[in-house]
Amino acid sequence: MSCNKDDDNNQQQNTTVEQTINTVQSGTWKVTYFFDSDQDETDHFTGYAFTFNENGSLAAIKGSTTITGTWSVTDSNSSDDDGGSSGADFNIFFASPPDFEDLSDDWDIISVSNSKIELTDVSGGNGGTDFLTFERI
């Protein structure tokens, strides 16, 4: 019997999904880089501490300000709406304010380590490429 390549890919993606979920839930994170299509907008998130909770809720806290959203990590083979790459998607959603709405997307994962998560997305509207990096505080 030969090994099915698809089985290997699915196993690897499941590991990436689980690894990413476990990593992001442990600790507090900050945005160290956010490039939105044509400009660096990292400064919009200076001072915010991001916490990714087990129940799928997401909190960005700066002083007495708390902005809430949701997050998940999914296997994009079944729901990849950007037509881009296969692999895991890091999904972030904020309803407001506008700066945080810009983070709402199904991000493709570039890399995950215990201290850094690098994400990218090719925008459907203007075709620009966005980048988002979280680093553990």
Rank of each mutant, 00 (worst) to 15 (best):
S78A: 15
G69V: 11
I21H: 03
N77P: 00
T68P: 08
G83Y: 04
T42E: 06
K30F: 03
N22K: 14
S78W: 13
A59F: 06
Y48F: 15
T32Q: 02
V31S: 02
G87H: 03
T70N: 15
G83P: 01
D80W: 08
D75T: 06
G63S: 11
F34D: 02
N77T: 15
S72A: 15
A60F: 07
S37L: 04
Q25F: 08
G47H: 08
G87D: 03
S37V: 13
S85H: 10
F50H: 04
D36H: 12
F45K: 02
T20C: 04
F52P: 07
S26F: 04
V73W: 01
T32E: 05
T74F: 11
G56K: 09
H44F: 13
G56N: 12
F52C: 06
T20P: 06
T46R: 11
N53A: 14
T20R: 05
I67Y: 03
T20F: 07
Q19A: 07
A60P: 08
S57F: 09
I61Q: 15
T20D: 04
G87Q: 02
T23E: 02
S86D: 13
T68H: 08
S72M: 11
G87F: 01
S78D: 14
G27W: 00
T51K: 12
D43A: 14
N77K: 14
E18H: 11
F52S: 08
T51A: 12
S79E: 14
E41K: 14
G56W: 11
I21N: 06
G56H: 08
F52H: 05
S76K: 13
G69H: 04
W29R: 01
H44I: 00
S57L: 13
G47C: 12
K62Y: 13
D38K: 03
